[in-house]
Simulated assay, not measured.
Amino acid sequence: MGSVYRSTTDRMFAGVCGGLATALGLPSWLVRAVFVFGGGIFIWIYLILASVLPSE
């Protein structure tokens, strides 16, 4: 697993899913689907990660 950061190129909102996808070696659409369909806790996780992760 690589360094986790907010992506500046693969982003829709804050770049959290794009950065996580790169670090995990997964397609970004899959990570986005987990956040969208995962439920309310994933919204809070996304907001926390968006505020603490640095940009690439």
Results as ranks from 00 to 15, higher is better:
M1E: 02
M1W: 07
G2C: 01
V4G: 03
Y5N: 06
Y5G: 01
R6Q: 06
S7N: 07
S7C: 09
S7R: 04
T8Q: 14
T8R: 13
T9H: 10
D10I: 11
D10P: 05
D10V: 07
D10E: 13
R11W: 03
R11P: 03
M12S: 07
A14W: 03
A14C: 03
V16C: 01
V16G: 04
V16K: 00
V16N: 01
C17M: 05
G18P: 02
G18W: 05
G18T: 05
L20Q: 04
L20I: 08
L20T: 01
A21W: 02
A21M: 08
T22E: 08
T22V: 03
L24S: 04
L24Y: 05
L24E: 07
L24P: 00
G25F: 00
L26E: 05
L26T: 01
S28R: 04
S28E: 10
W29Y: 08
W29L: 12
L30V: 08
L30G: 06
L30E: 12
V31M: 10
V31Q: 06
V31R: 06
V31I: 05
V31T: 09
R32I: 07
A33P: 00
A33E: 11
A33R: 14
V34K: 11
F35R: 08
F35W: 06
F35C: 10
F37N: 11
F37D: 07
G38A: 08
G38H: 06
G39W: 12
G39P: 10
G39Y: 15
G40Q: 10
G40M: 13
I41N: 06
I41F: 15
F42L: 14
F42G: 09
I43D: 14
I43M: 09
I43E: 12
I43P: 04
W44K: 06
I45P: 07
I45A: 15
Y46N: 11
Y46E: 15
Y46M: 04
L47D: 07
L47W: 08
L47S: 10
I48D: 03
I48V: 12
I48T: 15
L49T: 00
A50W: 03
S51I: 10
S51Y: 11
V52C: 13
V52M: 14
V52Q: 14
V52F: 15
V52Y: 12
P54A: 15
P54V: 07
P54C: 06
P54T: 13
P54S: 14
S55E: 15
S55Y: 14
E56V: 14
E56M: 15
